[in-house]
Nucleic acid binder design. Structure first.
Length: 214
DNA sequence: GACCAGGTCCTTG
DNA sequence: CAAGGACATGGT
């Protein structure tokens, strides 16, 4: 039990090393905290290109901030984000997030003074924000050391022979990371790139990531 | 036309 | 708890 856990740690560390060598530093999830938070909701089960279009519409309408969305009627938001699909539920979720940040926390500046665990708990209490969305916000909007586990991360881990269930994957990777937000940002970015361009099949058919040493 | 996309919640057995 | 369905548009 202890031995296999340590084996997974070594595999995880090796994945990070292999991907870093392969991709180096790549630009990933740009934008101010407001834009990242909005994008985190919009990207749920949705291609990023469609999210970018919706973000453009929101910017054109001068609505690309939670404080503004908080005061905007749902129908206006629905029109702007329609191209990301699930636009009714996503509008509801954006509204809930906007209320939490602006009212409960006192604004985007204020929420960033809170401890990571406090923010995470608050986000997860919002209907429509699960682990991935919460961690995306912590990692990419606020620069916190909170690793994002998504369908791609899970696939890569599977390809490497790590069968740890999703809830424990986060802790597993965070255990082997050096304490640096940059590592958290880039590792997730690398995994998405690798999954999109190399390990493209939903079912792991043996991309042999661990054989890609050097 | 079928199938999938950087999820999450709700309902059933 | 596992499995199945709903939410919806857009690209391949």
């Amino acid at each position: 039990m202890l031995a296999s856990s340590s084996g997974n740690d070594k595999k995880a560390a090796e994945i990070v090393r292999i991907l870093t060598t392969r991709f180096g530093d790549i630009p990933w999830w740009p934008g101010d905290p407001d834009e990242v938070m909005i994008g985190a909701i919009l990207t749920q089960q949705t291609r990023w290109e469609n999210v970018e279009r919706a973000l453009s519409f929101l910017k054109e309408e001068k609505l690309c901030s939670l404080a503004l969305l908080h005061k905007t009627d749902p129908e206006t938001i629905e029109v702007a984000i329609r191209c990301t699909g699930f636009y009714r539920v996503k509008t509801r979720r954006l509204k809930a997030l906007a209320a939490f940040v602006t009212e409960t926390c006192g604004g985007v500046e204020a929420i960033q003074t809170l401890p990571t665990a406090t923010i995470r708990k608050g986000l997860l209490a919002i209907n429509g924000i699960g682990e991935e969305t919460a961690d995306s916000i912590l990692c990419y909007a606020f620069g916190r050391e909170s690793f994002v586990i998504d369908a791609y991360t899970e696939r890569i881990a599977c390809c490497a022979g790590i069968t740890t269930p999703r809830p424990k994957l986060k802790a597993l990777f965070e255990r082997v990371f050096t304490k640096d937000p940059h590592v958290y940002h880039q590792t997730h970015a690398h995994m998405v790139e690798y999954a999109k361009h190399v390990c493209t099949k939903k079912r792991c058919e043996g991309c042999r990531i661990m054989a890609l040493n050097r």
